[in-house]
């Protein structure tokens, strides 16, 4: 569906079901340079099981208009504005990679609005490889190829996707190339590299939090994810083996199973 935030048109997938304000809201926030489509194997389940879902395209990404936001802090405020714009007072947040930085910061800034937090491939900081950052800022498609290479674990490089016929390395790459690389991936990578408040923000979080980490994640390794989780009071950690950073595609079913259990327990729907 489309709606406006700060005067700019925003697109969000509702998981294939009509958006219903009487149901609890889950907001999914994608990673650097990507779009709402990365969440297709998680959002549809919740949309069919009593939740209203918004898998967002961040400004300037996917089908959303405007320019990419330049800082994680701006993105965090924008998420809060999204909640207001769709007429809700609260929501549950799910983030992947850069989306984890955004949702951590948003939760720390707006503690009354956010009811649960689910982090996938999250860390307190995501410093960028300088070569990768330069390639992305120069709009070089090699940046996307490198990101997809590093973001997939050894098993993920072979494929074997739960959706028959879908080859996810190429699919992820195509998502990241769907808009101008330097205006999406380049801006996002710089925002990640600049963001230094992740660990301080984590200390302020007092809501149920889940971290899903993957043993073969080279971009946000398990030890970095644990370091972040240790700062969040009572947070739960689930580690998926034989999987890389793109866990939401590489091991979509296992991720959904963990997410489903966490959200339905901590943010149940009455519908």
């Amino acid at each position: 569906m489309k709606f406006k935030v700060n005067g700019q048109e925003v697109f969000a997938s509702t998981g294939g079901r009509p958006f219903d304000k009487n149901k609890p809201l889950i907001i999914f926030v994608h990673g650097s340079g990507l779009t709402h489509m990365t969440w297709v194997l998680q959002t549809r389940y919740f949309a069919f099981h009593g939740y209203s879902v918004l898998a967002l395209d961040l400004p300037g990404h996917g089908l959303s208009s405007g320019k990419s936001l330049k800082s994680i802090e701006d993105m965090a405020d924008w998420i809060s504005n999204v909640i207001d714009a769709v007429g809700y007072k609260e929501a549950s947040l799910v983030g992947h990679s850069q989306g984890c930085l955004v949702t951590i910061e948003c939760t720390a800034r707006y503690p009354d609005k956010i009811k649960t937090l689910s982090l996938m491939g999250g860390a307190g900081a995501i410093p960028m490889n300088p070569d990768l950052l330069a390639l992305a800022e120069n709009g070089d498609p090699k940046a996307v190829d490198l990101m997809m290479d590093w973001a997939h674990g050894p098993a993920g490089h072979f494929g074997g996707h739960p959706v028959p016929g879908l080859y996810h390395i190429n699919t992820g790459g195509m998502l990241a190339k769907s808009r101008t690389i330097k205006d999406t991936l380049g801006v996002d990578f710089r925002a990640c590299d600049n963001y230094k408040n992740g660990f301080e923000a984590a200390k302020k979080i007092k809501i149920p939090t889940l971290s899903i980490l993957a043993t073969d994640d080279k971009m946000c390794p398990v030890k970095e994810g644990r370091k972040l989780a240790d700062l969040i009071e009572g947070s739960k950690v689930d580690i998926i083996d034989n999987c890389g950073h793109m866990m939401l595609l590489e091991e979509a079913d296992r991720v959904l199973k963990v997410l489903k259990s966490f959200i339905t327990t901590n943010y149940p729907s009455k519908n």
Binding site: G159, G165, Y167, N170
Partner: peptide, 20 residues
């Protein structure tokens, strides 16, 4: 869909540089 056929589908998609 079928798991064996699915392997073939992914294999050809990968060789062609396609998404699916």
């Amino acid at each position: 869909s079928n798991p064996t056929v699915g392997v073939l589908e992914e294999r050809v998609a990968s060789l062609e540089g396609g998404t699916a």
